[in-house]
Design a protein around this nucleic acid. Structure first.
Ligand SMILES: NC(=O)c1ccc[n+]([C@@H]2O[C@H](COP(=O)([O-])OP(=O)(O)OC[C@H]3O[C@@H](n4cnc5c(N)ncnc54)[C@H](O)[C@@H]3O)[C@@H](O)[C@H]2O)c1
Ligand SMILES: NC(=O)c1ccc[n+]([C@@H]2O[C@H](COP(=O)([O-])OP(=O)(O)OC[C@H]3O[C@@H](n4cnc5c(N)ncnc54)[C@H](O)[C@@H]3O)[C@@H](O)[C@H]2O)c1
Lengths: 251, 251
DNA sequence: TACCGCTTGTGAACGCATGCACAAAGTCGG
DNA sequence: CCGACTTTGTGCATGCGTTCACAAGCGGTA
């Protein structure tokens, strides 16, 4: 909706009605994997590979071959039985479904440790996500270029986001500021937010939020360490080699 | 089911076998949420809150109340019916299940844009994840302290990781180096890896990998933009300037 | 002590995602 | 042109995760 210019004509290449229905039905989990397939396929294309089978591609993407085929089937039937998939064709169809046929302007809010890293990162523009705006409250930062873009004051967020047609907002401020920054982004018309602050954001229904929570990631890893340690411990104590449900733990 | 003891009365082992069995059965998705609950609860504790109901906590964590209760039930029954949960009690039990009763040393490999941000980040040590080792190949960086820790050469990774008992390795190198760095971490005995490089890592079964893939996150957001735009487009045949839900889109 | 109202903990139903297994559909060699 | 071989696309079963709904349990109150 934010991408919608006036009425009728959009700059985005419209999907065929059939594709539109498909896109609506793609499971979230499959979308995430499609993005991974896309990267793997792009890499293959760069190396001159023109065709690939579901088996090869699934290996490279680290998933089950059947799952890969099912994922691809969500976007249509573009393979050739007995042969496999044409890399270029697959790339273009995945890009189309993911909405990568147009650029998505990114704004980063909070130009501290993380914000600097993000602003300097060269991987985004190349993939269709140019960083076009940076915001902070720190007076010493305003106007200073980071990664080639001068930092704007957070109070100008609405004007700047509208002017530069920002469609994705990245929050890299301290936790206490995150909700307020989020609200400002939303009122500036940004409907997609990537949040690095360890805070649960409240947003209206029409806004999509994804969070990257490193502490949570670490704690999940910690859980697995602990679980493994416990398993080892339970095996070393007068154990009979059987797990709780009778499965053999160690042959 | 999985929690039930073999046949008849098993010996009354005075350890905590119940918890061990429970931990094994916790769904991955629930573990991730437990980490979130823990953060919310810690915040509440800091503000002097001593008791909380599933309704309140679920609101704060942004999840369904029933789901929250089920998640908590995986770790045991520590609530009081008619009252709610004691914040301190819940915190300590979640910490125990997540293995946060001990510290987990973290090593960061690749001290570039992102590695610097991670090394300087103050949020990890406070939560039981002290960064104790940094690695890079760049000769100019070796010995230079970042966030108080001198950067070691990647070739010393095995010795340093063993000496500092590193249990989590964070990969922040360019994509081409990631697999090789991963292999080195694994042979240094690190069993948990957090990967920022947009690469699918191959590891043995006993190693746990979690990836943080910002490009994928952005592409998922892009997908939702596209989907929304399409929905709007399908409505906007003879559009009146109003979006699907009647909100003004952008003049 | 007995009752009442509130909140937990969980059995059960549901829905979504995964993985299997195979028919359909194509290629290629003869 | 045909038949053997390869790989896709998908119906189906299975398992996991979410949600509902309510009995069980507890504190407060009379
Ligand atoms: N640095 C990391 O590696 C890392 C890791 C995990 C999570 N995080 C999270 O990411 C966020 C940023 O981390 P950081 O290390 O870059 O912090 P930082 O303190 O280095 O930077 C925060 C920046 O946000 C700015 N800021 C503060 N309030 C603001 C506001 N209202 N509007 C706009 N800008 C504002 C500050 O001026 C500062 O420049 C934090 O929430 C942190 O918890 C960071
Ligand atoms: N910077 C970001 O915001 C960002 C965002 C998303 C993903 N990433 C990913 O994170 C990774 C790091 O990004 P960055 O921007 O910090 O890159 P960078 O180029 O700034 O830093 C990479 C560092 O890794 C070091 N290095 C190279 N090969 C190495 C090896 N074999 N062993 C040890 N160190 C080695 C380099 O010397 C350099 O210091 C990349 O894979 C990138 O795609 C970064």
């Amino acid at each position: 909706m934010a991408a919608q210019r006036g009425e009728g004509e959009t700059t985005t290449t419209p999907l065929e009605p059939a594709d539109r229905e498909r896109a609506r039905a793609i499971p979230e989990a499959a979308v995430a994997r499609l993005a991974v397939y896309l990267r793997v396929l792009s890499g293959m294309a760069d190396q001159g590979v023109t065709a690939v089978s579901s088996e090869e591609l699934s290996q490279a993407a680290g998933v089950n071959a059947a799952k890969l085929r099912k994922d691809l089937s969500y976007i249509g039937s573009y393979g050739t039985r007995g042969v496999g998939y044409d890399v270029e064709v697959l790339v273009s169809h995945i890009e189309r479904i993911l909405g990568l046929t147009r650029n998505h302007s990114v704004a980063v809010v909070g130009i501290g440790n993380l914000g600097h890293a993000l602003a300097n990162y060269g991987g985004f523009p190349g993939r269709g996500f140019p960083v076009t705006a940076l915001f902070d409250v720190d007076a010493d930062l305003i106007g200073v270029p980071v990664g080639g873009i001068p930092v704007s004051h957070i109070d100008d967020i609405t004007a700047v986001c509208l002017e530069r047609e920002v469609s994705i907002g990245v929050i890299a401020t301290p936790p206490p500021a995150a909700q307020s920054v989020c609200d400002r982004l939303v009122s500036a018309g940004v409907q997609c937010i990537l949040n690095f602050a360890p805070v649960v954001l409240q947003v209206p229904d029409n806004v999509e939020v994804r969070k990257v929570d490193l502490a949570v990631e670490m704690q999940i890893l910690s859980f697995h360490v602990a679980r493994r340690a416990d398993e080892a411990a339970s095996v070393s104590v007068g154990n009979n080699g059987l797990g709780v449900d009778g499965m053999v733990i160690r042959p």
